[in-house]
Every structure is written in structure tokens, then in C-alpha cells.
Design a protein around this nucleic acid. Structure first.
Length: 244
DNA sequence: TGTCGGATTCGTCAGCTTTT
DNA sequence: AAAAGCTGACGAATCCGACA
């Protein structure tokens, strides 16, 4: 795969920037989902904490086909059961399904032994009609591709033979020419984008988990409310018996 | 079958928070 | 204080159901 990137994003049009600034000034920032959920969990037993990420799953090989043992089970307002298992697997089962039947597993894992400096993101969606997997290698190589008015860069697979004259990953201390500096800046940018990409995925996963926990809380509170109303009615009947 | 509109997903940017 | 991390917002791409 060869993708061409033109360096245009540094010169964002000022009008849009001003608009977004105004918009963001209005917005107030909220604490992270992890923080909110962990605060919730300290208040309410039964609300699981979002665990700190453990690096590389610590000895457990990623086994997508196996069923994770649920550590927390919730029922949503729509009647679905949600099980959050160790390792971050979220399992959703529909009512009426027994055990494994009707169970979906969503797993975000890191590979057990990635190559040095590379991150492998594995997304598996397991359902009745089979399993899909996407592997995203993070060790792509960005090289300066063409000369001209605007520098362009190519993203290449690591196995791709590099064009002549391309210098890979020079350490900052050994940079001399403007071209090397540009390559280093591009490399840093790609690294930053890659990290942010992964962070965004993780953030969205946490957000979904947070929403599910809120839904489960709603379900629990609805049941509690119903019971309290029934109890109140019972007490009313006891305290004021009908005089027929 | 084409298309329209709403929903969802993803990558990116920007700005804030947390960590070092 | 700087670096790293987190997350709301945005736009583009894609999916999917409804409709003519």
C-alpha cells in the first residue's frame, strides 16, 4: 500500500479555527469517563471500576474464540444482558438465549509479542455468522516521496524496499540537514497520530462502557423505585384500612 | 434498483488534565 | 514546565432501512 500525504494541515484556514475556538470556549470540560466511573463505583457497589490498562495482557495469549469469564453482569433497559469480563471483553446476550447461544463478544487486545516499537491492535467481532478480525500494524514507514513545491510523503509497509537516499529514524542528536529534520518531524507526527488514534479508540470503548453502566444503574434504580412504590402502597393499606 | 436521510464508525485536531 | 494522555467536536466514509 502506498498512500500519499500532502503537508497542508499545518496551515488551517483561520475562519474555521476562530469558529471552533468560539465553540469550544462555550464548552465546559468534564472529567474522564474512567474518573467518573471509578467515583461511581466507590459510591455504588456493583458498578465496576474501569481498570488501568495492563501492558500486553501479562501472559494471557489473546484467544478470541474462548469465552471470557464474566466478572460483572448487567441488564439493560432493553432486556439485554451485558457481561464485562476480565481483559475488557464485553459480552452482550439477548434474553431468551441460554448460555453461549446468542452471545456476542467484542474484544480489544494487544498482541502477545509485537515487534519492537510496533503496536498491533486487534479487533475481533464474534457473532453467529463467524469472526472478523482486523490487524493494524503500527510500524509503517513514512518516507519523503517527491520533490517539488510541496513536500509529499509516502506511507510504506516496513518490508517495502526503501528508495535510494532515504534515511530511517535518525536520532535527534544526529540530525543535520533540513531534510533530515523534516523526516524526523514527519516521523514524530506519524507516531503522535498513531498514538492518538489508539487513544481515541480506547476513549470510545470506555465511553460505551460508561454508558452501559449508566443504563444498568437506571435499570437497578427503576426496580428499586418500583419496589418502594409497592411498599408504600402496602403501608398505606395497613395504616388506613378501608371502612366498608 | 437508485437514492435519500439518519445512524454509526473512524481519524484527526484542539484544548484541557494528568503525569513526570 | 514539559510531555503524555484524554476526550469533545468535526468531517468523511460507510451502512442500512424506507421510499419512489
Amino acid at each position: 500500500m502506498v498512500a500519499t500525504i500532502a503537508e497542508t494541515d499545518e496551515s488551517a484556514d483561520s475562519e474555521g479555527v476562530i469558529d471552533s475556538h468560539k465553540r469550544r470556549e462555550i464548552l465546559s470540560r468534564r472529567p474522564s469517563y474512567r474518573k467518573i466511573l471509578n467515583e461511581l463505583s466507590s459510591d455504588v457497589p456493583g458498578v465496576p471500576k474501569i481498570e488501568e490498562e495492563k501492558s500486553e495482557e501479562e501472559g494471557t495469549p489473546p484467544n478470541i474464540a474462548t469465552m471470557a469469564v464474566p466478572t460483572s453482569i448487567y441488564q439493560t433497559s432493553t432486556g439485554q444482558y451485558i457481561a464485562i469480563a476480565q481483559g475488557g471483553t464485553i459480552q452482550i446476550s439477548n434474553p431468551g438465549s441460554d448460555g453461549v447461544q446468542g452471545l456476542q463478544a467484542l474484544t480489544m487486545t494487544n498482541s502477545g509479542a509485537p515487534p519492537p516499537g510496533a503496536t498491533i491492535v486487534q479487533y475481533a467481532a464474534q457473532s453467529a455468522d463467524g469472526t472478523q478480525q482486523f490487524f493494524v500494524p503500527g510500524s509503517q514507514v513514512v518516507v519523503q516521496a517527491a520533490t517539488g513545491d510541496m513536500p509529499t510523503y509516502q506511507i510504506r509497509a516496513p518490508t517495502t524496499a526503501l528508495p535510494q537516499g532515504v534515511v530511517m529514524a535518525a536520532s535527534p542528536g544526529s540530525l543535520h540537514s533540513p531534510q533530515q529534520l523534516a523526516e524526523e518531524a514527519t516521523r514524530k507526527r506519524e507516531l503522535r497520530l498513531m498514538k492518538n488514534r489508539e487513544a481515541a479508540k480506547e476513549c470510545r470503548r470506555r465511553k460505551k462502557e460508561y454508558v452501559k453502566c449508566l443504563e444498568s444503574r437506571v435499570a437497578v434504580l427503576e426496580v428499586q423505585n418500583k419496589k418502594l412504590i409497592e411498599e408504600l402502597e402496602t403501608l398505606k393499606d395497613i395504616c388506613s384500612p378501608k371502612t366498608d
